[in-house]
């Protein structure tokens, strides 16, 4: 079950909204599909980002996957612990594995993202 307080993007990122700030990570499905994560390339604090843009990469022992932002704005914080402990994304994708905080320029973009229930149906439809 995906956490109910988050919104989800079809590229398997999640967003937690607090005021104008959006915390971003990758979903449990994404970390499971990637396998052991060994390195995460994140944007720098202060970077301007646009919804749909690739902002980083996740490297696992098996493959490389892009991180997309589903919202526009400015990166105000990145998770400093992931540099030495990228495996936190495998262990706790919705908690300690958070990746970046974005100060949103257009909070209405959140409305386009999926709810937990919608994301679960989306995952189920992808399996077919």
């Amino acid at each position: 079950m995906e956490p109910n307080d988050l919104r989800y993007h079809e590229e398997h990122e999640w967003i937690r909204v607090q005021g104008k700030q959006a915390t971003l990570g990758i979903s449990n499905f994404a970390q499971d599909a990637l396998g052991d994560i060994v390195f995460i390339d994140l944007p720098k604090s202060g970077a301007a980002v646009t919804a749909g843009q690739q902002i980083g990469e996740v490297e696992s022992t098996k493959t490389t996957s892009s991180i997309y932002t589903p919202v526009s704005g400015t990166v105000v914080k990145i998770n400093p612990d992931l540099k030495d402990h990228p495996e936190a994304v495998n262990a706790d994708p919705y908690g300690k594995g958070w990746m970046a905080v974005i100060e949103m320029s257009d909070p209405a973009q959140i409305d386009k993202l999926m709810t937990a229930a919608q994301y679960e149906s989306f995952l189920a439809s992808q399996k077919k």
Binding site: G35, D36, V38, S60, T61, K62, E87, N90
Partner: peptide, 11 residues
């Protein structure tokens, strides 16, 4: 099988 418990754990 590409992995069971995880690539690094198996390694």
């Amino acid at each position: 099988p590409i992995q069971y418990s995880g690539v690094i754990d198996e390694y």
